[in-house]
């Protein structure tokens, strides 16, 4: 909120001037929690995506954050790295080791497939991956095999990734951003431009949230693991 919405005028001029600005936003989304709606930045992507140059990146966990911070600092151009304030579990692969740790190479603009499944893919933006993983585990326990995808780089969706997502019968996007103008909308647009389509359910922030603990706020917005798992189970 302080780093993007309040400074959009300057960010725009920096983009016009091809600067090499790096913004690290540490308190984004409804995840800010108790400070309430004035402090909850849910427009960071929408605003910066209105420029041509700014790259918005939302790391999924501390390990990916580490790689992304290093990438942004050593790459020319304007970058906004968007983080939440909550503590997050380290995302692990199917083998239980850190997914974004040793052996993982961060490639800007590419999605990560965290769990493979069929028919339904849950696409998580940045820090929502921890809820995504919780959702996947619930679905897995109930015998529903879904895919779990993580997207950190909203500004440049790779055509091959878009194509892979279109192969699913249902796509559910989960983001801590205004649902009208976030990752789900960006994916839909990219898909149509490639003459592809699928059934898309967008889940994000659909109204200004209140003050409260982030898990409670996510629940009230239908962004918690139970709500998303139930949604996915209902897809035919």
């Amino acid at each position: 909120m302080f780093a993007v919405a309040e400074t959009y005028n300057q960010a725009r001029l920096n983009d016009i001037n091809h600067s090499n600005m790096k913004i690290f936003c540490t308190h984004c989304g409804v995840d800010v929690g108790e400070d309430g709606k004035t402090h909850q930045s849910i427009d960071y992507f929408a605003l910066l995506n209105s420029t041509f140059g700014w790259k918005v990146i939302t790391p999924a966990d501390p390990n990916q954050t580490d790689r992304i911070v290093r990438y942004a600092l050593s790459t020319p151009g304007n970058f906004a790295v968007i983080m939440g304030r909550s503590k997050l579990p380290t995302v692990t692969g199917s083998n239980g080791t850190p997914f974004f740790g040793e052996g993982y190479e961060y490639k800007y603009g590419r999605m990560d497939i965290i769990r493979e499944g069929e028919e339904v893919a849950l696409v998580c933006a940045g820090n929502m991956l921890s809820i995504g993983l919780e959702t996947w585990n619930k679905l897995n326990e109930s015998g529903k095999k879904s895919s779990l995808i993580s997207i950190s780089d909203w500004s440049d969706l790779h055509p091959e990734d878009v194509k892979s997502m279109a192969d699913f019968k249902h796509l559910v996007t989960l983001e801590d951003h205004n649902v009208k103008t976030g990752l789900g909308t960006a994916i839909a647009s990219a898909m149509m431009e490639q003459s592809l389509s699928t059934h898309l359910v967008k889940r994000g922030v659909s109204e200004y949230a209140s003050s409260g603990k982030p898990p409670d706020l996510y629940k009230s917005l239908g962004l918690d693991a139970d709500s998303v798992a139930n949604l996915i189970k209902s897809l035919k």
Partner: peptide, 18 residues
């Protein structure tokens, strides 16, 4: 690299990386 057992916030990982 933060191990599978670690639970921390992305902002701390940012501060450390910086």
């Amino acid at each position: 690299t933060y191990g599978a057992e670690v639970k921390t916030d992305n902002r701390s990982a940012f501060g450390n990386a910086l």
